[in-house]
Every structure is written in structure tokens, then in C-alpha cells.
Amino acid sequence: MMNLAIETRSLTKKYGNTTVLDNLTLGIEKNTICGLLGRNGAGKTTLMSILAGQELKTSGQARVLGAEPFENAQVLAGLSFARENQKYPEEFKVSHVVRAAAWFYAGWDADLARRLVGEFRLPLKTPIKKLSRGQLSAVAIVVGLASRAPVTFFDEPYLGLDATARGIFYDLLLEDYMEHPRTILMSTHLIDEAANLLEHVVVLQDGRKVLDSSVEEATRSAFTLSGTATAVDTAVGGRQILRSQALGGLRSVTIAGNPDERLRTEAKAAGLEVGPVTLQELVAAFGLLESGESSLAAASSPPQTQHEAEEAIR
């Protein structure tokens, strides 16, 4: 499809006997901010590395801006990818990074770079190797945003940033994105914080895709029910429980699907609360299903594939 900025088909990556990406098929439309979510080791960075032409795939297809990215000068010229543990040239200072990045991008905005350096209070004359974790993240954010690359990857860009700096990042990202729409793929564990930015979400689990939908669709696909444990268990009936949390005699469950009128009436009568599910809760539900942390969910099969996952939340 011409409107896709990123597309993979049966993409697989193996390191020896370990499968890091397993038959992954997904598509991300142009000019969207997409969240790439999943637990550590789910394959998020590997996916971005392959899309950025840094890592070789084992099999399948990966296309960025309509073509295979590996050694494709035209495609890569429109990409920006700063790893969570990005390496920089030895002895480089922040000023060197900012100056050099300008040589790589047609759309580089020096004014925005200056503004970002100021907002994040980056010391220009400090060698990169002496920066704190948060300052390193800020350097990656400066390059990623000021590059205005048509496809920008952020790999956990908030690491080490305090709440204020994270807020600045989210605000500036959204502000610049509104003025200069582009495709942004961001891996993150801070889902609640980033939820308002994201239009699309892809959730990976052990190299497989378990969710790939718009955020709106995803959060509409489940709801929460909370109250006394007995009343909750009665009201749930045969519905698919994605996640269950208990505290004393109280229980809160995340249920796949939408609450029908009968459930709402029963819930009201039993003093239960029916609420919307947040993206964080939904993603946590997938994570917990996999690890078996949810006692109720353990009774049902965890969604292993995109199809099963979508079925589960329908």
C-alpha cells in the first residue's frame, strides 16, 4: 500500500537458535505517531534496527518508504534512529553532534536544535561520554526532532529524563509533529505518559505481534469492572478476562469487548463500577497473560497471535 511508511511481511530475525522477531507482519501509515510497546526483550529495538538498515533480517520483508531499507541510500537518507544506548564518536562534545547532524539531513532545523538544546539544558562543551543518562537521551531527542526525518525512530527516548524534561519532550514532539507531520515510531514503557501522543500502537511479545491497531480502537476493545470480588466474579460470567487484580476483598478485572446493557444494569445493582480501559492497562493485560500473573486469566488461553489477540479483545 502506497500510504504505508513502514511495512513488514513475515519478518523474522534469529540470533542462532533464538528467534527475536517471529513472522512479523505489520503496517504503519505515513504521518502517524506510532507506539511500539512490549516488555524488555520483546524485539522492539531489533525491529527498529532492521527498519533502519543497521541489522540484517533472517527472512521476510521489511519496507520503509516503499523500499527495502538495507543499504538503500535514498530510503536511509530519510531516516533517523537513535538507540537507547546510542554510540557517539570518541571525544565528541554535544556541539559536535549538533553540528554534524546538520550535514546529514535535508530538513535539519538549526533553530529547533538550538531551542531543544536550551530546553533540555544541554551543556554544549561537555564531552558526550561525561553526560548523564538523561542528557544522553536529550541529545538523541535533539537529533531526532531537529532532523525532521520523514521516518524517525525513538528507542525509549525518555531514559533518565525527569518528569519535567519528559513533559517538554512530549510537548515539543507534538508541537513539531503538528507543524511538520512525519512518521514517528517510538518504543516506550511509559505508556500512560505517551498515550495522548500516540495514534497507533503495535505491541510485541516475544517477537510476535499481539496488538496492531489505532489507540482509539484498542482502548474501545476492552473495559474494566471493579468492586467486591464476589460481585465481580458473578457479573463477569463467561466473558473473556484479560487481567485481574485483587486487593483484599476487592477485585478489578479488564474484560475483552464492550459492556452491554445487561452487564451495566447488573453492575449498577451490585454496586460495581464499569470504566474505560487505558492503553497501559490493556498492554499490561497482554503482558500478564503471557507471564501467567493473572490468576483468572490463567484459566483462559493467552492470545499468542495477532488474530487470537484481536479475537480476544473483540
Binding site: A73, S80, F81, K87, Y88, P89, F104
Partner: peptide
Amino acid sequence: ARTMPFAMGMGAT
């Protein structure tokens, strides 16, 4: 070891 990953992160082949 260090400069190449930086350049490739900024779209060099």
C-alpha cells in the same frame, strides 16, 4: 566502533 553507528543512525549507508 563508535563513529559508524552514529553516522548510520543518521541515515548513512
